[in-house]
Amino acid sequence: MSSSTASAVSDLAATRGSSASTGDRIFAGLCKGAGIFVLILLGAIIVELFIGGWPAFRTFGLSFVWGANWDPVAEEFGAIVPIYGTIITSILALLLAVPVAFGIAYFLTEISPMPLRRPVGTAVELLAAVPSIIYGMWGFFVIVPLMAQYIQPAVIDSAGELPLIGWLFAGPPFGTGIFTAALILAIMIIPFISATMRDVFQTVPPVFKESAYGLGCTRWEVMWNIVIPYTRKSVVGGIMLGLGRALGETLAVTFVIGNANRIATSLFGPGNTIASLVALEFGEAEAGSLKLSALLALGFILFVLSFIVLAVSRVLLRPRAGQ
């Protein structure tokens, strides 16, 4: 059933008759051409973003990447604040999402009674289907007031007073900010990570688990000592996939991040991600202006970041597909 057998069989077919080979040549050419087109597409995206951002790179040089000043009035642009925001919200989102996703995967593969598995599994996957603008609106109209009125004041009053880590929770309870954005992102990536984990957990050969149960292991011990070590690489790959998604999320973050061009020390402070900055400021950037070019340069940086994360995730995930 592997593709090598398939092509061996079909190559046999290809050796017959000249009329067959014309049709075959055309079709094969079409397929291969489409494949090359996809390669060219990615190349074109990288190139176009770079060309668009070139004026900004040229003006500020490499210091654009770590410049801390984003001042549209003075036409000075530096990318470190949105880059920092992108990375920190995504990593926070992972910290929040991975335990929950793992819990869901564990529940669905080991604990849940059979009749519940499909509906609950489908419901969790439907979370992934909800468009991101819905997350943004729901986040702003439902989560933000909750944060502003109950959660943030409570945390600021309690944890904010602690000596060493109090500064992490300081500031007025706007409700929006880095933590809220990370929370919304976490909810968005939970289904991706949990779906990957579920698929991967189910590839563990039953005999391993059965032997462990035979020795008297509890369900959790089987998960912790057998399943996770077996699937560790793919689990990390799935987590990186979730990270890749979180890096590029635009609409969900735009509503709740607060668009501040400074790095706030507090988790409840406002920030910026690359995607939300581009979305918010695009309308007021004229074509040909340095600001538009700075936004496109930011897009290029985001692409590089996503590319690295997604490539690593793929390397970790793919071997499983060949099994």
């Binding site: 000043n69 984003w70 001042d71 549209p72 009035v73 003075a74 702003f140 109209f141 933000v144 007031p145 502003a148 009125q149 007025p172 309870p173 706007f174 409700g175 929006t176 900010g177 735009t254 509503f255 607060g258 668009n259 501040a260 061009n261 400074r262 402070g269 406002p270 918010l280 400021e281 007021e284």
Partner: peptide, 25 residues
């Protein structure tokens, strides 16, 4: 400018965003 480098505070999207944030905080 239509967008500036704000020294302090937080941003919200649109009039509704600003009003909502003020209402909540």
């Amino acid at each position: 400018g239509t967008s500036v480098k704000w020294p302090s505070g937080t941003g919200a999207r649109g009039n509704e965003g600003v009003a909502g944030t003020v209402r909540n905080t």
